[in-house]
C-alpha cells in the first residue's frame, strides 16, 4: 500500500448524496481477478451513455477534473455493497482522497486498506469546498494527514478527525496483516482457550 502523507491536487465536486457502490462501479465490471484497470469503469453510467460515449455534463469528463485527485460529495458516500472494486476504481482513476459529510461503513474501511483517505467534514464545509472546486485548475486543495487539515485554495485550514491507528497505518503505508501477525502469540492463545471452552464447536470439512 502507498503511503498517504500530503496531497495537493484538483478536487472534483460531485454534489450527490447516497452515492452507492453500484454507481461507483456497476456489478458487471466485477468479473476481474485483478485489482488494477478498473478506473475506466469508474462511475460508468454517470460518465458514459448507452453507446459508450462520454457524457460532457459529468464532472470527471471535464477539464481540469479529468485529473482530479480529490472528490467532494454529499452524505452517505459509498453505501451498498462491500465490493473493494469501488476504492480500486477510484484509485485507478487517480483519486486518493474523498471528502464527504459521512461514509458508509464498509466503504470507509476499504478506503483505508488501499491508501485512500476518507475525510469527514460537515455538509456546510463540503458545500464550501465544492464552491472552491468549481473555480477549476487554479483552485488546488491540500490534504495534510500528519497535521489533520484540509487547506482551502485561499489558505484557510480546516481540521478533521481520524483514528490514531488508521492515521499511523496510512502515513507509513503499513500492511494490516503484517501488523496483526505481530499478535500471533495472542491469537494462538485465544484459539487454545476456545478449543477448551467451546469444545462443542465443529470443524468444517466437505466430503
Amino acid at each position: 500500500m502507498d503511503k498517504f502523507t500530503t496531497l495537493t491536487g484538483i478536487a472534483a465536486p460531485l454534489p450527490l448524496a447516497n452515492v452507492d457502490t453500484d454507481k461507483i462501479i456497476p456489478a458487471r465490471f466485477l468479473k476481474t481477478i485483478k485489482r488494477s484497470g478498473l478506473g475506466v469503469h469508474l462511475f460508468d453510467t454517470l460518465r458514459f451513455d448507452a453507446e459508450g460515449r462520454e457524457r460532457p455534463e459529468f464532472v470527471l469528463n471535464q477539464e481540469p477534473y479529468r485529473k482530479a485527485e480529490i472528490l467532494i460529495a454529499h452524505e452517505n458516500f459509498g453505501c451498498g455493497s462491500s465490493r473493494e472494486h469501488a476504492p480500486w476504481a477510484l484509485l485507478d482513476f487517480g483519486i486518493r482522497c474523498v471528502i464527504a459529510p459521512d461514509f458508509a461503513d464498509i466503504f470507509n474501511n476499504n478506503c483505508y486498506k488501499n491508501g485512500i483517505l476518507p475525510v469527514r467534514l460537515p455538509r456546510a464545509v463540503c458545500d464550501q469546498l465544492m464552491e472552491d472546486a468549481r473555480l477549476g485548475g487554479n483552485a488546488r486543495v491540500t490534504v495534510d494527514l500528519a497535521r489533520q487539515v484540509v487547506v482551502r485554495p485561499n489558505g484557510e485550514e480546516i481540521g478533521f478527525e481520524i483514528d490514531a491507528f488508521r492515521k499511523h497505518s496510512l502515513l507509513n503505508g503499513l500492511d494490516d496483516i503484517g501488523q496483526t501477525l505481530q499478535h500471533a502469540p495472542q491469537i494462538d492463545g485465544y484459539e487454545a482457550r476456545q478449543r477448551q471452552e467451546k469444545s462443542w464447536m465443529p470443524a468444517i470439512a466437505v466430503v
Partner: peptide, 20 residues
C-alpha cells in the same frame, strides 16, 4: 458482517480482523 477483499485476505491469513 460484510468485509472488503483486503479484509478477506486478512481473515484468511490471521483468522482475525481489526475492528472497533
Amino acid at each position: 458482517f460484510g468485509i472488503g477483499t483486503s479484509e478477506v485476505e486478512h481473515v484468511l491469513a490471521t483468522q482475525t480482523l481489526l475492528q472497533r
